[in-house]
């Protein structure tokens, strides 16, 4: 048995789907952003796999741009979260009861 490109592609599809599910079921924006990172990593894996299979460096270069974009998105996303948290009062038991629902 040999590891073919399809193995990696299937793994990448599974990872992407886990990211999709996580982003849709979690309510915490921090974790949502982490799920986006999972999805982007799945994309990176598929890029590298295609690059390797096609014997073309272009796919590896694409991963670079994904890295840049991921970093930029995370920076802005975390800044918004910090801005929101500035406006919120400290956690109280009442808050948590609202969140439990």
């Amino acid at each position: 048995m040999e590891i073919t490109a399809n193995w990696y592609l299937i793994l990448s599809a599974v990872l992407f789907s886990i990211g999709v599910v996580g982003l849709l079921i979690r309510r915490n924006p921090l974790v949502m952003f982490m799920c986006v990172e999972l999805m982007l990593n799945a994309v990176n894996l598929s890029f590298v796999t295609f690059s390797n299979a096609l014997n073309d460096v272009g796919g590896q270069v694409a991963v670079f741009f994904v890295l840049v974009v991921a970093a930029a998105e995370v920076v802005v996303g975390l800044a918004v979260i910090v801005a929101i948290m500035r406006r919120r009062p400290t956690a109280t038991a009442d808050d948590l009861s609202v969140l439990a629902g």
Binding site: L9, A42, V43, S46, T49, F50, L54, G58, G59
Partner: peptide, 8 residues
């Protein structure tokens, strides 16, 4: 992901 697949 779409770009990646079109690339592939």
């Amino acid at each position: 992901y779409g770009i990646s697949m079109v690339y592939g």
